[in-house]
Design a protein around this nucleic acid. Structure first.
Lengths: 258, 258
DNA sequence: CGAATTGTTGAGCATACTCAAGGAGCGTGG
DNA sequence: CCACGCTCCTTGAGTATGCTCAACAATTCG
């Protein structure tokens, strides 16, 4: 089982056999180097691409060279699942560290929609979760102060990383520069630095190289107004049926250095 | 044909018979008064609700009473299509003017997913478009100056309204207060007022009561860095097959006053 | 016509930005 | 193993964009 089917299984109770079926369609498994694009804006709609291991971001380049990061992609996330239906990319996906990815032909996705409703449902589910995260980001960027924005983002990333076995309650290793945090939060690089220092002096976070430490996670979550509902990590519908653990083994590829 | 099936037909070539099938499931058609909620945050997952006529917004209330508007819903848009798969609402939908809505039972939606792949595909398509719009809003709110934010939003709304027959190249009637624009753009009400005045004095827009006039739409779009791709109004896949007009008759209910 | 909501204006202030320079860390090559 | 160079981070100073508060004007609606 890859991270992808595990995620779908945990979120939507995708059966093991459906998981096998889906994975059989993955082709061209390979690695992408940090800073390389995994999918590029404006590209003629190619394959659907999925992150097996690593850490990537969805970003838009704007007139004037500004960049906005609109999502982070973790193991198990799809880069461009919308392409079979929408046709074209309106943004890019870039690797933030070495990533292992695989392809899924558009025609295979379309066939799934027609003939494998349980798998189709799982795929739709992942895009719905992505959308819920976008909405929360709109709230974060639009209506919180810079320090709370950063706190909120750190809480989200910690929880999502924990969910794929890459973070604990009190620490995570993030392959992000201040520049990237800035383009995520809609503030300047310099301000990220200052605001992070403030969080540190308030003992809400600590850092050790690229590692973030959380001396009092609850306090940080309250400060950042973080409520995890929107991540839909334990879907009600599946919670009652779930038997296996949601925990995924930390991968070999991924110790989040670059 | 309602606005809903027209939208799906234009976007995804949903066949007329599938449209009829879908509409047969609409129940409880009724009106919602301005300022009433159409779907409320935290509600136990009820029916899926759809806007037939009117104008509504998706919004989140945040600690401290702040509000963020994360989307506008026009005739043909679904309020909570995610509910059958995600289970719970993580935000509300409120009517901005008198709206005509209908319900669709969750179980009917789930049945569609299992047995009507073409309709399922159309439903997925609408959520993918919504997601594309969210991404563009993140860019707008995160990385543009207040004047460009407003310009961009006006361009988007004009085009979407035109697409359902409620705006022309050079005018639209918007049932929005400065307060609502502010909560959409992540700026203050007062600043909306000032920035709008600036757009007026630059001859990028004019207003007449609740009507916005666009003396030079192209200039406004360039100023607001508006490129319509992300709205996916003429889907490549459907464009080649489409025969009928994309134009929808202006509705009786909806002359956007309130 | 009157009350309530919405929009405008001004003044002072805060948050966050820009620019620029210096420092720290890290990887690469000698 | 050290030196170099790159990227990334930090710090300071000055500035700009946008915010708050408060009062008043204009609409809208009953």
């Amino acid at each position: 089982m890859t991270t992808v089917t595990l995620k779908l299984h945990n979120g939507t109770n995708l059966s093991a056999e459906d998981g096998v079926l889906l994975e059989a369609l993955f082709t061209n498994r390979r690695f992408i180097e940090p800073r390389d694009d995994i999918v590029r804006d404006g590209e003629p709609a190619g394959e659907v691409r999925v992150i097996l291991e690593g850490f990537a971001c969805r970003y838009k380049l704007m007139p004037g060279g500004k960049r906005v990061i609109t999502a982070y992609l973790l193991p198990g996330d799809f880069c461009n699942l919308h392409v079979p239906l929408l046709g074209k990319m309106d943004h890019s996906v870039g690797a933030l560290m070495k990533c292992s990815v695989a392809d899924l032909h558009q025609s295979d996705v379309l066939n799934i929609l027609d003939s494998r409703p349980r798998i189709a449902r799982a795929l739709w589910w992942t895009t719905l979760v992505d959308e819920a995260i976008s909405r929360e980001w709109l709230a974060n960027i639009g209506r919180r102060s810079a320090d709370k924005k950063l706190a909120h983002l750190l809480c989200e990333l910690r929880l999502r990383l924990e969910n794929v076995g890459l973070a604990t309650q009190d620490s995570m290793t993030l392959p992000l520069t201040h520049d990237e945090l800035a383009d995520t939060l809609g503030i300047s690089t310099v301000h990220v630095s200052r605001v992070l220092q403030q969080l540190k002096s308030d003992n809400l976070v600590a850092t050790k190289g690229r590692e973030f430490l959380f001396p009092d996670l609850r306090k940080l979550e309250i400060f950042g107004e973080f409520r995890c509902d929107y991540l839909h990590l334990d879907n009600e519908r599946s919670a009652t049926h779930r038997t296996e653990s949601r925990f995924i083994e930390p991968s070999i590829v991924t110790n989040l250095t670059r």
